[in-house]
């Protein structure tokens, strides 16, 4: 009898449960989905964020790598999750590219941009243009002049077609009015190896990855995509300084599925604001040589929309690829 009563009570409580859950959010583990494999930027940012959140919320926060199709699998997983604040996403710039590429190929989109709502930006590293040290170009002007003389003869490697490194180079070549030969690789690592081996002429990549090779004299940095110069490379000018109106960042930020209750969103935003103050988090990012670039949801929203618009334009400009020799 008592058990039945308890059951009846429980049933009565069901409609109220979400309200209760909101009041004491979180009461069970939160999952942060990193749509890329362990060791990637999304993963390496998500883990210290999760550790700091765990400390602040006194509640388990786990990172799950849901990889596949250049991040589309993990992102669509979160986009279609229950909007209760327990499933979050650590996304990179590519979040804006995938739906646009889907449009380009008339595919059913894996997710749409408005299915995910920004929570906080953690880092935004500008990419740096680096050429093999044996090449004659000492600055962007040399490079552009040479590229104009020999259209399509100078090559660059990228992490993959429509990938972030491809986008950065597309913005540059469009702004400079030059034609470069794009050779995609299966990731940022192989793309770097290709330039080190002299098989391709240059690439755009994050400062932390490039610096050891620049210091060793194998690569030369020509310019950066940031609004400001990178602290670790004070001599490398930005494209903006050189008169090219382009900006590009490899950024990492947290998102929640659309429809997450306002109270939970507020709590998560507050938590993330505290996260970036945690010494452990600062330490972890410093070791990765990635400066923290925190933005709360409203600012991040603006940044994200502007960035997304630029990436969408670049994607459309690239269009469907026609291969040489066809």
């Amino acid at each position: 009898m008592r058990r039945r009563l308890a059951l009846a009570l429980m049933l009565c409580c069901i409609p109220v449960a979400p309200v209760l859950a909101q009041e004491k959010f979180p009461d069970r583990p939160i999952t942060i989905v990193a749509p890329f494999p362990p060791g990637g930027v999304a993963d390496l940012t998500a883990r210290p964020v999760a550790a700091a959140m765990e400390k602040i919320l006194k509640n388990p926060v786990v990172v799950v790598n849901k990889t596949g199709a250049a991040g589309a699998v993990g992102m669509s997983f979160v986009a279609n999750s229950k909007p209760d604040g327990y499933t979050l996403l650590m996304a990179l710039s590519s979040i804006s590219i995938i739906p646009e590429a889907d449009k380009l190929f008339d595919r059913k989109p894996a997710y749409t941009v408005d299915q995910l709502v920004p929570l906080a930006l953690f880092s935004a590293d500008p990419t740096i243009l680096a050429v093999g040290a044996n090449h004659p170009w000492k600055n962007v002007r040399d490079l552009v002049a040479d590229a104009k003389k020999r259209p399509g003869a100078i090559s660059y490697s990228s992490s993959g077609i429509y990938g972030t490194l491809h986008m950065a180079m597309e913005m540059f070549s469009h702004a400079a009015g030059i034609k470069l030969n794009h050779v995609p690789y299966g990731g940022a690592g192989p793309a770097l190896t290709a330039v080190l081996g002299g098989h391709q002429d240059m690439l755009a990549s994050g400062p932390a990855v490039l610096i050891p090779h620049i210091k060793a004299g194998k690569l030369r940095a020509l310019a950066g995509w940031g609004a400001k110069r990178v602290a670790a490379m004070p001599d490398v000018p930005t494209f903006k300084e050189l008169g090219y109106d382009i900006e590009f960042y490899i950024w990492a930020g947290a998102f929640a599925p659309k429809g997450t209750p306002e109270a939970i969103m507020k709590k998560l935003r507050e938590t993330m604001k505290q996260v970036v103050q945690e010494p452990e988090f600062k330490d972890a990012m410093a070791k990765l040589e990635t400066p923290i670039a925190y933005m709360d949801a409203p600012d991040f929203q603006k940044f994200y929309e502007r960035d997304g618009k630029m990436l969408a334009e670049a994607t459309r400009r690239i269009g469907r690829i026609e291969e040489p020799g066809k």
Partner: peptide
């Protein structure tokens, strides 16, 4: 530089510890 997916993860492990993998 990584020669495959497994060394790539191991390079990431070095970077987490503040060691920049490179020729030096």
């Amino acid at each position: 530089v990584p020669s495959g997916p497994i060394p790539a993860v191991m390079l990431a492990a070095l970077m987490v510890h503040g060691i920049s993998p490179g020729p030096l």
